[in-house]
Design a protein around this nucleic acid. Structure first.
Lengths: 347, 347
DNA sequence: CTGAAAGCGCTTACAG
DNA sequence: CTGAAAGCGCTTACAG
């Protein structure tokens, strides 16, 4: 077959070479059953030879679709310096794969150049729907979410199921995770379990983990002791300080449930620095199973969220919304990963 | 101002409301100086009120631009299960920010659905240019890169400067990094420095680090001892095995330069398990400064690549190529980060 | 099974 | 400073 090379071929060029109409080329490339098989194959061959790909702008303009999902990470740091939450970052890989499997590209955005930037993605036809990460604190984002709903934007949020915000969510059952962690500590015989971490309404995930902690205690006929609860934001040094504070308070405790691995790791360091042995004197459990968790000494028992499942759920959800299928907000169950920081085995 | 709300407004809707032509709306929204100031402002107001955003498909079709950069991560793992290289992942955040600052969106892709998928991004007008991560092994990718060049695709590769592949690169001066690491070990008085890591042509970064190692030795009048070189792929367990093998060989060594932190951490564990004290008996240096490096015991001395600078360089490079400015392939200098795994201070 | 034609929503050269 | 018009490259209803 002699096909002249064309610099930026269009469906018209293919049509000319194949001796058919441009419409037929378009149909053939979309594998329409309307086109005779031989014609279709011939057209595919020519397209391949010319390195032709459908112009997405033109197709998108016609069909009002972009086959693209925008992934908006709320940038907690605000600045350009800090690292992005590694949990979200690793989710991103799975999201991209899951989206590709369903024929969608993924556009990422970490910044808020304008106030409406989240609306802009869909309104400008760059994306058919949005996945929001880091919007857990719905008190701050309520307005943004309401604006998204008002603009008829399709979006799904990673986070807890919330009422009255008009959006779909996919999240981790943090309450269940907090329950599992605490129940494990009880099962290995711990009696006085401290809780380290922030639980304001601004961090609903953490509050849910605390709720699970309370319920596990209740399941053992215990009430939470306020003296064993220390607030700490999600930084290692603050975990260190929280544990230090707990020790200095003279409170009597034999276990720590930290609301994140980062806090747990800081707390373990504080305990060790104070001569408290982990896990002999005090058992420690974290939450997240970050890569570091397996590497600290002793290796940290923690609660793992299945990142891949999370990505799958978010992508499945947003694609469902885009394709007008029914979508339910869902929570997935986390899993306790037992390592050395707790000592004894569950009885 | 009484503006009826329109579901999916177009520039025509704005024009009707403003009582001007659609062309004027288009000019006003692009802030053309051709439009009278008052007219322009009125149009912007109406657009804002209607939640109007320019349809990117239509604009892109007209201008043949997408204002989008595609970020292609070569997926070393091949499968859907494994995690993505965390180094690339954290680069991604900075890339997204740097691109946004220049008015570009970032499309990410981790998979090779088709053989031409990297060409497809630009040919389909989804992206104006590509950033390639994980293509360091140019022996395998030579064909792909040649195809990209042939297709007149604009792309920049994270990696070493290479001849004859017709692409631009931005990378880390790994040779210099290897030199710094080894020179530091020499400066603190180490005499017999082992090298752990793979150095085939398939991993040019690692080979460059080894080259720097050799040069540093030469600068001290030493030749590399083949008995002190053990191959190891970039996994912690393989680093462990490599160090174990070195110990069992009976070779005499007082320092280890591992080609990555992951290998270094595995090696430290092997040394400690064998009763060899780090840093008293053996100094260890890694490469990458991954987050874990500061957390292992003893904290790992390593060579840090400035991820933010790397992202800035890659984005600057590809935007330069897109906007037809001259772009030079560049190497940036890494930086030695001294921690506890080496012991003594440089004299 | 195929073609001619309309039209998606912009941008911009041309004319005033 | 503004408007009428062409045209970017597709998809798809309509007609055959």
């Amino acid at each position: 077959m002699s096909t002249l090379k064309v610099a930026n071929p269009t469906s018209r060029d293919i049509a000319d070479i194949a001796g058919v109409s441009q419409a037929t080329v378009s149909r053939a490339l979309r594998n329409s059953p309307l086109v005779r098989k031989e014609t279709r194959e011939r057209i595919h061959e020519i397209a391949k030879e010319l390195n032709y790909f459908v112009n997405r702008n033109a197709a998108g303009l016609r069909t009002h679709q972009s086959n693209t999902i925008a992934l908006l990470l709320f940038d907690e740091t605000g600045g350009a310096d800090a690292q992005i939450n590694p949990f979200f970052l690793s989710m991103l890989g799975y999201i991209s794969r899951a989206a590709a499997r369903r024929g969608y590209d993924v556009l990422i955005s970490l910044q808020q150049l304008t106030n409406d930037w989240h609306i802009e993605y869909q309104a400008s036809h760059r994306a058919d729907g949005l996945i929001l990460l880091g919007y857990g604190d719905y008190l701050s984002y309520r307005e943004k979410l309401a604006a998204l709903s008002a603009a008829n934007t399709r979006f799904i949020i990673w986070g807890p199921i919330l009422k009255n915000h008009g959006g779909h969510t996919f999240g981790c059952d943090n309450e269940n995770g907090g329950f599992q962690a605490t129940r494990h500590l009880l099962d290995i015989g711990r009696e006085r379990i401290a809780f380290l971490g922030q639980t304001s309404r601004r961090s609903p995930e953490f509050s849910a983990r605390h709720q699970g902690y309370v319920e596990a205690l209740a399941s053992a006929g215990k009430a939470p002791d306020p003296a064993l609860k220390v607030d700490a934001h999600n930084l290692e040094d603050l975990g260190y300080q929280a544990a230090q504070q707990l020790i200095e308070s003279g409170a009597n405790f034999d276990a720590v449930f930290a609301v994140t691995d980062v806090i747990a790791i800081g707390a373990m360091r504080a305990l060790q620095d104070a001569g408290v042995s982990v896990p002999e004197d005090v058992s420690v459990v974290g939450f997240d199973d970050m890569p570091l968790a397996a590497h600290v000494t002793p290796a940290l028992t923690t609660v793992r969220q299945d990142i891949r499942l999370a990505a799958e759920g978010l992508v499945g959800g947003i694609v469902g919304l885009i394709e007008d299928e029914p979508v339910e907000s869902t929570l997935m169950a986390p899993k306790l990963v037992v390592r050395q920081s707790c000592g004894g085995q569950a009885r």
